[in-house]
Design a protein around this nucleic acid. Structure first.
Lengths: 156, 156
DNA sequence: GTTGAAATGATCCCGGC
DNA sequence: GCCGGGATCATTTCAAC
């Protein structure tokens, strides 16, 4: 029985991930102390986690409302043709659409969910009309306002 | 004409946010140099952004698949009663459900979207049956597998 | 993989503007 | 507000295990 190519994550690595998911700017030596290893060891483990892609990056969580984007919505999108080309073309354009926070490519009845942030409802309408319904690959959209958005880190 | 209580974000603050959204571990002095201010000034501006809630936090972006959660899904949930009590009760429980990455409380036909990560399809079925359909407030659910998940930072 | 120790580099407070 | 300088603290390298 060959060894797992993606070996079990060591408990100490999980502890590091838990801390960094909670506070991405926690100093390396504080993490080292919290998990019980030397700072130099901790540094090399964090580097390895980044290189292996376990940690994909570190990001500030910015409140969109503070930037004048006070309204968030989720837009379900159905495309006309489910060809690889149409999907790839749409996928390629999505990140450049203004106000898109996230895009989910789904396997269900809808093809995409777009999570967007806009200044006001006029901008929301304009977004849908200009970038979605006017798009040749888009067959149908359905927009829902987002009242609240909770993020959690299940492994922390 | 009174001054805006949430005054326009200074261009230098926007530049700082753009950098920290892209790399949450960028050193303060590197940010200071990039935006053209002194490190001490930069530090105080970042602190002010945190205290004002513009920056809500810093987090490592961890790949769920690396933790054994190789399947992601979006589950649309409708509740029976749209009373404040039912919604608040459900909202309170959602963050403690295993594998929940995010919950969106919507204004549309569905009440919630749950973004979850699980090890396999068995765990997905168990999640829906144990935590959603068995819940007294839940009227209906609809699960879609997530093929891809793109995150963007529109202001960067 | 882990470590301690030493050099480099960053944070952060404060006095002055 | 913004800055400079200096004390404190963190990161990073490296030789040794």
């Amino acid at each position: 029985m060959p060894k797992n190519p993606q070996p079990e994550l060591a408990p100490v690595d999980r502890a590091i991930l838990r801390l960094l998911a909670a506070d991405g700017r926690m100093p390396n030596n504080a993490i080292a102390e919290a998990v019980g290893i030397a700072p130099s060891t901790c540094l090399s483990r964090i580097r390895a986690l980044r290189e292996r892609g376990v940690i994909r990056g570190f990001h500030a969580d910015v409140d969109p409302a503070a930037l004048g984007l006070g309204i968030q919505a989720m837009i379900a999108v159905r495309l006309h043709a489910h060809t690889r080309g149409a999907i790839e073309a749409f996928t390629a354009e999505v990140p450049s659409l203004p106000g898109v926070l996230a895009a989910y490519h789904l396997a269900g009845g809808d093809d995409y969910l777009l999570h967007i942030a806009v200044p006001d409802t006029d901008a929301l309408r304009d977004f849908v009309l200009e970038h979605l319904t006017a798009h040749p690959a888009v067959a149908h959209t359905e927009t829902s306002l987002i009242f609240a958005h909770l993020r959690t880190t299940p492994w922390s």
